[in-house]
């Protein structure tokens, strides 16, 4: 085995990754992180933060302008038989039937295709395999696209807003299918989404993109544990040496999300923030310093596993 694949526990490793479209501001700019395998990772960020760009580069569809990205220990594109990618608009061939679409999956992935798995996902949605993609609703198309993605038996799934156009019931059910499948096969999943509730239920890992780089990265539990929501009398300056991510005056007091450095001082009521509170605070405060947990940092010394 070559030296690049000597760290099989890493699904994605970005180093100084940058992508610029024409003269517009860079979509990704010096983005560095690691994503360990077998994690279900959420990819979060404001619109235009570079989420789709990052996923497309990882899928081997775009060339980065600078920096490198390794996917399952290989260059993007070299591992395309081991990854699944679901684009935001769920492209499928409208002129094919569902059955023909799945047959295409079998023909284009001859070494890995799991026809039973793909057919099961389609059946769960009460879809007639003989109906054409052209006539399907958005949610039904998502289901077929997901069947195509899971039928490939990928080691890494890159999902760009996978559930955006599904009704709550179908979303819950498909998410369940996806998660059960990922857990059973140890698949790594990186999925972008705006629906925090969906992420909190499904994901155990988080990458928050902002300004073209990773602002928060790590296990969700670790990230939550590193932050505290404090309420009390005082000013943000009183909270030193902690890093104040965001603070708001509430009545006569102050509510702040802090990144703890030591125990929280007297006079402050402390509680662990919810994922939503953590995300919103970081989205509102783009200048807050980045935090990547050791397993997520793209440095040589972190590669000890």
């Amino acid at each position: 085995m070559s030296s690049t694949s000597a760290t099989p526990a890493v699904a994605l490793e970005a180093s100084g990754l940058g992508k610029r479209y024409g003269r517009r501001p860079a979509a990704l700019d010096g983005c560095s992180f690691r994503l360990p395998t077998s994690r279900i990772s959420a990819l979060v960020g404001p619109n235009g933060a570079g989420k789709s760009t990052l996923l497309a580069i990882a899928a081997g569809l775009l060339r980065p302008t600078s920096g490198t990205l390794t996917v399952l220990g290989e260059a993007p594109g070299a591992a395309r038989d081991r990854i699944s990618y679901l684009a935001q608009n769920k492209p499928l061939y409208p002129q094919l039937t569902i059955a023909e679409t799945l047959r295409m999956g079998a023909e284009l992935n001859p070494a890995r295709w799991d026809a039973a798995c793909a057919a099961r996902i389609v059946e769960q949605g009460d879809l007639d395999p003989k109906s054409r993609i052209r006539g399907l609703s958005g949610g039904q198309r998502t289901r077929v696209a997901l069947a195509l993605a899971l039928g490939k038996r990928p080691e890494l799934m890159l999902l760009d807003e996978p559930m955006a156009d599904l009704d709550p019931l179908a979303r819950h059910e498909l998410m369940g299918t996806l998660m059960a499948d990922a857990a059973e096969h140890g698949t790594t999943v990186l999925m972008s989404s705006h629906i925090v509730a969906e992420l909190a239920d499904a994901c155990d890992h988080l990458l928050l993109l902002g300004g073209g780089r990773v602002r928060l990265g790590g296990g969700i539990d670790d990230l939550l544990a590193a932050h505290t929501l404090v309420t009390g009398r005082g000013t943000p300056a009183d909270l030193a040496p902690h890093t104040v991510i965001e603070s708001r005056t509430a009545g006569r007091g102050l509510t702040a999300l802090i990144r703890r450095d030591g125990p929280v001082g007297e006079g402050w009521a402390a509680e662990e923030p919810s994922l939503e509170e953590l995300l919103l605070a970081h989205l509102r405060a783009p200048e807050a310093p980045a935090l990547l947990t050791p397993g997520t940092t793209a440095t040589a010394e972190a590669v000890t596993a």
Binding site: A56, A59, G60, L61, I83, Y85, A87, P94, G105, P110
Partner: peptide, 14 residues
């Protein structure tokens, strides 16, 4: 334009 080429490229086909 419709993204189906990208769909093909993310199967096991370069």
């Amino acid at each position: 334009e419709s993204g189906t080429a990208q769909l093909a490229w993310t199967q096991s086909v370069s």
